[in-house]
Design a binder for these strands. Structure first.
Lengths: 107, 107
DNA sequence: GCTGTATATTGCTGAATAGTCATATAGCGA
DNA sequence: TCGCTATATGACTATTCAGCAATATACAGC
């Protein structure tokens, strides 16, 4: 593990370490959307959403395509959902264990 | 995707969004290590490393076990390396594409 | 050209946090 | 008990960044 690779991987995780961006990715799961549609889907305001989209694009998570006045964003990296599923799975497993400890606290 | 799940998943990614913590996890890949050994392996100072370990532990990435004066940390979640491999793969794929664009710039 | 709409960018502020130093706690042996 | 070592925690600083408001840019129609 070279220091640069650590940096790059950490940077990639950092992009995903933000609920708003996960929400955007989730909104893109069904297909391309333009910015206004994403604003509505996520509730983010225009400037904020635009910045998140810039970051997602800069890191290769989404691609963009202009059509007239609209800019369509689309998922560019299928591995995102694998990552999220793994993270979700771990989160849920922890919640489950916590619930079980609460149900029958053996300590 | 409920807001809380988004928060939880983002929080989990945030733990991994730090080169120092990835380095710690990497150092634990071969088996349990106590704090002093991790200091040497990572070059982090004691206070800083201890904080990173607290965070890794709080999020369930590692488990801890006391043996006399020493505290041994151990990986508690195998999915970490799957996550990292995916992220590494994406990073490398991007580097590869960038290199190819540089080698034969068709624009 | 001008006007309106969609998106991007800039500047700012508040909140979170990595790193460091100093200090505190935990466990061992004498 | 005391002294020593290993680890944890508190206080502080500097940096990063999400969110917001205002402004700028890109494009279409006239």
């Amino acid at each position: 593990m070279t220091p640069e690779l650590l940096e790059d991987v950490a940077a990639r995780f950092k992009v995903l370490a933000e609920p708003a961006r996960l929400q955007v990715l989730d909104a893109l799961a069904d297909g391309p959307r333009h910015v206004s549609a994403l604003m509505e889907a996520t509730g983010l305001n225009q400037a904020n959403l635009s910045k998140h989209l810039q970051m997602l694009h800069a890191h290769g998570f989404v691609s963009r395509r202009r059509e007239g006045l609209f800019v369509y964003y689309e998922l560019a990296d299928d591995s995102v959902f694998t990552l999220c599923d793994l993270a979700c799975g771990a989160v849920e497993a922890r919640a489950q264990r916590a619930a079980e400890r609460h149900a029958r606290p053996r300590r």
